[in-house]
Computed example of a mutant assay.
Amino acid sequence: MFTHVMVGSKDPERSRSFYDKVLGALGIGPSQSPPGAGRHFYGDMTKGGAFGVGTPAEGEQQHANGGTIGFIAPSSQHVDAFHQAGLDNGGSCEGKPGKREGAPGSPYGAYLRDPDGNKICAFAPPGR
């Protein structure tokens, strides 16, 4: 459905370091960066979607009010590693790892804010 999702960063290299570790904990990455572009991408938009972070083309960074970007985790252990990697690399907790009883199937997930304040999460399918 999507080619990519992009979030802004005031410091793309700090973001690359953060996301290389956080998404690396989910088996994604490392980033692929066009030389000098100030943007870093994870995944392959030609094969079903990519996530990008970089300097906003419009200049001033803004956050999506109520926006969250969710990543698939292979297991609850990967969710735990994602969350810990985020905390260890400049992110902040927006929801500790655990079952989400209000979500369909009660999946296991965790929420973070990246160093620029963008909200992300990782969820493992129920039973994993």
Results as ranks from 00 to 15, higher is better:
Val79Asn: 01
Gly27Ser: 06
Gln32Met: 14
Thr55Glu: 08
Pro115Thr: 03
Gly36Val: 03
Pro56Tyr: 04
Phe82Ser: 04
Ser92Asp: 11
Phe2Tyr: 15
Phe71Arg: 03
Leu112Asn: 09
Ala122Asn: 00
Gly24Asp: 05
Gly91Cys: 12
Arg14Ser: 13
Thr46Arg: 09
Phe82Asp: 08
Asn118Ala: 13
Gly86Met: 00
Gln61Arg: 14
Ala122Phe: 02
Val22Tyr: 10
Pro107Gly: 13
Phe18Tyr: 11
His4Gln: 11
Glu60Ile: 06
His40Gly: 09
Leu26Met: 11
Glu94Cys: 11
Phe18Asp: 00
Pro30Trp: 07
Val79Met: 00
Gly49Thr: 12
Leu112Thr: 07
Leu23Arg: 08
Tyr108Lys: 01
Ser76Met: 14
Lys119Ala: 03
Phe123Ser: 02
Ala124His: 03
Ala64Asp: 06
Ala64Thr: 03
Val7Asp: 03
Ala103Pro: 02
Ser33Leu: 10
Ala122Ile: 01
Val7Tyr: 01
Gly43Arg: 04
Leu23His: 05
Val7Asn: 04
Gly117Thr: 01
Cys121Gln: 04
Gly29Ile: 04
Arg16Thr: 12
Met6Cys: 10
Val79Ile: 06
His83Lys: 02
Gly8Asn: 10
Tyr42Trp: 01
Val22Ala: 11
Leu26Lys: 07
Val79Thr: 01
Lys21Met: 10
Asp114Arg: 11
Arg128Ile: 03
Arg113Pro: 01
Leu87Ile: 02
Phe18Asn: 01
Pro56Val: 05
Gly127Phe: 01
Gly102Asn: 10
Leu23Val: 04
Ala81Cys: 09
Ala50Ile: 07
Leu112Lys: 07
Glu101Cys: 07
Thr46Trp: 08
Pro126Asp: 06
His83Gly: 00
Glu13Gln: 14
Leu87Thr: 14
Asp116Val: 08
Val5Arg: 04
Tyr108Leu: 02
His78Glu: 14
Gly102Asp: 11
Tyr111Gly: 00
Gly102Glu: 14
Gly95Val: 04
Gly91Asn: 05
Ser9Phe: 07
Tyr19Asn: 05
Thr3His: 15
Gly48Pro: 07
Gly59Leu: 02
Gln77Asn: 15
Lys96Arg: 15
Ala81Pro: 06
Ser31Leu: 14
Asp44Ala: 05
